[in-house]
Simulated assay, not measured.
Amino acid sequence: MDRDERFGMADRIISIGFWVNAVLMTMKLLAGHFGNSEAVFADGMESACDFVAIISTMIALKIGRKPLDEKHPFGHGKAESISAILVSLVIFSAGGGILFRAVQTIMNGSYLEPHLIAILAAVSTVIIKEALFHYTRSVAKRLESPAVDAIAKDHRKDALTSIATLIGVGGAYLGISVMDPLAAVLTAFFIFYIAWETFHNAAHDLMDGQAPEELICEIAAEVDKIPAVERVHEVRCRRSGQYLIMTLKLEMDPNMTVKDSHEATVLVKKRLFEKFTNVGDVTIHVNPHEPEGEHKDLIRL
Rank of each mutant, 00 (worst) to 15 (best):
A195L: 11
S83V: 06
A172N: 06
R137V: 00
Y173R: 12
Q104W: 07
A203V: 01
T165E: 06
L112Q: 13
I106L: 15
F192W: 15
T165C: 14
S110R: 11
Y135R: 02
V148R: 02
Y173G: 08
V178R: 00
A122M: 05
D154L: 13
I117S: 07
A202M: 07
R156W: 15
V87Q: 04
S88R: 04
H115C: 02
L174D: 08
I128A: 06
S124T: 12
A140T: 02
I167W: 06
A121E: 00
V87K: 05
F189V: 15
E113L: 09
A150E: 13
A164I: 06
E197N: 11
V169Y: 13
I119Y: 02
Y173Q: 07
V178M: 12
H204R: 04
F189M: 10
L182E: 07
R142S: 02
R142P: 00
A195D: 13
R142D: 08
G175T: 12
L112R: 08
K129W: 11
L143A: 05
A140E: 04
E144I: 03
P181V: 06
Y173H: 12
I194A: 15
K129M: 08
D180A: 03
V90Y: 07
G109H: 00
D158A: 15
A102Q: 08
S88N: 08
K153G: 15
H115N: 15
A118N: 01
P114M: 14
L120S: 02
A94W: 11
F189W: 11
F92H: 01
A195V: 11
L86V: 14
L86H: 03
M179A: 10
S162P: 00
A121W: 03
P114W: 14
N108S: 13
V169G: 03
E144L: 05
L116W: 15
S110T: 07
A131C: 14
V87I: 14
A102K: 05
R142L: 11
G95W: 12
A172R: 03
A184G: 01
N108M: 15
K141A: 05
F100V: 13
V169D: 10
L143E: 09
D158Y: 09
L132F: 09
I167Q: 05
I194D: 15
Y193V: 13
A131S: 15
T161D: 06
